[in-house]
Simulated assay, not measured.
Amino acid sequence: MLNALRLLRFTDDPDQVFTPTGIKRITRQAQTSPAQHKGKCMSMIASPTEFHLSIRVSDLEESTAFYTRFLGVEPKDRTPRFSTFIAPELRLNLVLLVNDSGKPLDTYSLYHIGLGVRDKAAVLESYFRAKANGTPIVKPPRTTWRGTPLHELWLRDPTGYGIEVYARLSPDELASMPANQEPTYLVPGTEPSAAPKHV
């Protein structure tokens, strides 16, 4: 202990120490107490840079072709067991994996994958592109008002996972919310047909 004190002791300046070769400044990491974060929501992860998602698929070749069109990028890596997509603008690292369990995949637990786009026009453009590619349309473009108001489009990937393409409403669009808050369909003729009347 005495030897350690001879080699290193603090000066009156808490950011300076005596060392055998002279006085040196030290950098201290900021330390915060739980009280300083009271009422704040802190991320568990420090400085995140990329979101990585790995999902198992029923048909790797078909799913790889689908996500190539969906993301607009070719796979970065492709093997008989997996395909990897890097979408820098989304900070996304998506890996598709073969299903080698011998059991059907559970598409219920992963409720859906969401992709936010710029505005209502982008949702509509995505709809027409998906339709031209033969992608199953689960819900056509519509504006929903309950919960979080969104312009949204729902698709289905080859495995059966749901995909939501959505845009948040502008203040002007929010101001036009109908009193009954029923969905507004954005493409004429895509509204659900009225239920048949029983006679």
Rank of each mutant, 00 (worst) to 15 (best):
Y111K: 07
Y111Q: 12
I113G: 06
G114K: 05
L115A: 07
G116K: 10
G116C: 06
R118S: 11
R118Q: 11
R118C: 09
D119T: 10
D119L: 09
K120Y: 09
A121G: 04
A122H: 04
V123D: 09
E125M: 01
S126A: 07
Y127F: 11
F128E: 11
F128A: 11
R129D: 09
A130V: 02
K131W: 11
K131Y: 08
N133M: 12
G134C: 04
G134R: 08
T135E: 11
P136C: 07
P136A: 11
V138P: 04
K139S: 12
K139C: 09
P141L: 06
R142L: 01
R142C: 06
R142I: 02
T143K: 12
W145F: 00
G147K: 03
P149M: 15
L150W: 05
L150R: 15
E152R: 03
L153E: 15
L153N: 10
W154C: 14
W154R: 11
W154L: 14
L155H: 02
R156W: 09
R156E: 15
D157A: 05
D157I: 01
P158C: 13
P158L: 14
T159Y: 15
G160W: 00
Y161T: 09
G162H: 15
G162R: 13
I163G: 13
E164H: 06
V165G: 06
Y166E: 01
R168M: 00
R168T: 00
L169D: 14
L169C: 12
S170P: 04
P171G: 03
P171Y: 04
P171H: 04
D172T: 01
E173N: 09
L174G: 08
S176E: 14
S176L: 01
A179K: 05
N180L: 06
E182L: 13
P183V: 00
P183L: 00
P183F: 01
P183I: 02
T184R: 14
T184W: 01
Y185L: 12
Y185S: 11
L186P: 04
V187R: 14
V187H: 06
